[in-house]
């Protein structure tokens, strides 16, 4: 059981990081459906940077920057040039997938350097890892996972306790109001889209560098779409995303786990569960009339100050 939960946590981390990235983007009022593409960009560039330099941090940095570059394209098109966000996001995914397999073809099958594997090997935190059940699951993990806990806390504080978080919410809810109050709409939108995209890239980098630790084509395998779904599941709250990602991460490995226990359920059925669960969630949340759980009101609406 502990082993399963610990593995579920590992599987949940890329989902979590990408979901938080998309939450930041959507809070600023942009619906970026390119998460899958951004994760692929991050995965391939992170892998290449890590492989060529042998340095784990260079790898993660490469992944983050690749995500930033991809989402910068999205931002330029949708914020400055006011292109349709759905179509632009899908394009980003197609581009990212194409780019990743094009650039990555020479790396197929190559393993990550030893230093990187060592850096991201599980590390028991003193005291905390001795807590029964919780200890081995949550506190005997790699440094990246500890960093993720930290990230969730930081992002929550940022969104709910700082001026910038308040302004961000205003930008996503009513760009015209935020603008009239002197908030720099484009700046906020750019920063959060690019930063959010960077997190998506980082999530991809974690997959290629740590989870797989060898380059395989299409390493992300649809997790980007699950992250898009998780944003809704979590009602745009990073803290809820933590739980949601853990749940979905668990589902993604449940089939193999059950097979090894002799219970025969096809993994393909279990693979459907995250998607089916998301559908269930959006159906249920449409019944929910609480205004606080709704998407940002200006989501996927572009803003032009001089529009009349």
């Amino acid at each position: 059981m502990e082993g399963f939960l610990a593995a579920a946590l590992v599987a949940s981390i890329p989902l979590l990081i990408a979901t938080i990235g998309e939450i930041l983007t959507e809070k600023a009022g942009l619906l970026n459906l390119g998460v899958e593409g951004l994760m692929l960009l991050g995965a391939v560039m992170g892998f290449i940077a890590g492989y060529e330099s042998g340095n784990p941090w260079a790898g993660l940095m490469g992944a983050f920057l690749a995500g930033c570059c991809g989402s910068l394209m999205f931002a330029i098109l949708t914020i400055s040039l006011r292109a349709n966000q759905v179509v632009t996001g899908l394009t980003l995914t197609i581009f990212g997938a194409g780019f990743a397999s094009f650039v990555g073809k020479d790396y197929i099958g190559l393993p990550v350097p030893a230093l990187i594997r060592e850096t991201f090997s599980p590390l028991a935190l003193p005291v905390l890892s001795d807590i029964p059940l919780l200890g081995p699951v949550f506190f005997h993990q790699d440094v990246f996972i500890y960093g993720s806990y930290f990230l969730v806390i930081i992002i929550c504080l940022y969104l709910y306790r700082t001026r910038f978080g308040l302004n961000l919410k205003a930008v996503g809810e009513s760009a015209a109001s935020a603008d009239a109050a002197g908030v720099r709409i484009s700046l906020y939108r750019y920063l959060h889209t690019v930063g959010g995209g960077g997190l998506c890239g980082l999530a991809g980098g974690y997959m290629s560098l740590v989870m797989m630790s060898v380059w395989v084509e299409n390493v992300v395998a649809g997790r980007g779409w699950i992250a898009v779904a998780l944003v809704i599941f979590a009602a745009w709250n990073p803290f809820k995303a933590l739980g949601g990602a853990f749940l979905f991460g668990g589902l993604s490995i449940l089939g193999f786990r059950m097979q090894s226990m002799g219970i025969h359920v096809s993994q393909y059925w279990i693979d459907m569960l995250p998607y089916a669960a998301t559908i269930l969630i959006i159906i249920l949340s449409s019944r929910n009339n609480r205004k606080e759980n709704q998407p940002p009101a200006d989501l996927s609406v572009s803003y032009f100050r001089e529009d009349r």
Binding site: L77, T91, I94, A97, F99, F102
Partner: peptide, 18 residues
């Protein structure tokens, strides 16, 4: 890789959208 087509498609579309 045939994926080059996806990449080129993506680039064309970025420009046309812009």
């Amino acid at each position: 890789p045939a994926a080059a087509a996806d990449m080129i498609q993506g680039i064309i579309l970025f420009f046309v959208l812009g």
